[in-house]
């Protein structure tokens, strides 16, 4: 079971274009990978975080119901958060390590600033449609 998940995870990693990250995949990263692919829109959040509340509100306002993982309530939350910070640091986000982090269709979109920017430049809606989160 463990072996199966791992091989599946690393496969998905390389297919997602994470490249080198997949090679040094640790448990945190693997957990992110598996959680992110479970739903069309996945948000890694902290239950008390107001910006996380904002991003959840954004998707709900667009008619999307995202899968939300509150890391402060999650048994492996610490691991996942550390892995997310590393992931965002690599993706060149302006605010590395800041939650929320959004995955659409199993692909990393980024933190709040990336989500907002892609919504304004009109790339978010097609992404959501492709992932099957939006029909209209």
């Amino acid at each position: 079971m463990q072996y199966q998940t791992e091989s599946w995870g690393s496969y998905k990693m390389s297919s997602l274009g994470f490249g080198g990250l997949g090679m040094v995949a640790d448990t945190g990263l693997l957990r992110i990978e598996s959680l992110a692919s479970e739903s069309a829109v996945v948000i890694f959040s902290v239950s008390t975080c107001c910006m996380c509340h904002a991003v959840k509100g954004l998707f709900r306002g667009m008619g999307v119901s995202p899968a939300v993982h509150e890391l402060d309530l999650h048994p492996y939350g610490g691991d996942i958060q550390r892995a997310l910070i590393r992931l965002l640091g690599c993706s060149g986000s302006s605010s590395p390590g800041s939650l929320p982090v959004v995955f659409i269709g199993g692909k990393l979109v980024g933190a709040m600033d990336r989500v907002m920017a892609s919504h304004i430049n009109g790339s978010l809606v097609p992404l959501l449609k492709d992932a099957g989160a939006l029909w209209l």
Partner: peptide, 8 residues
């Protein structure tokens, strides 16, 4: 979309 983002 800007209104949605503002609202969020």
């Amino acid at each position: 979309s800007s209104q949605q983002a503002e609202e969020a």
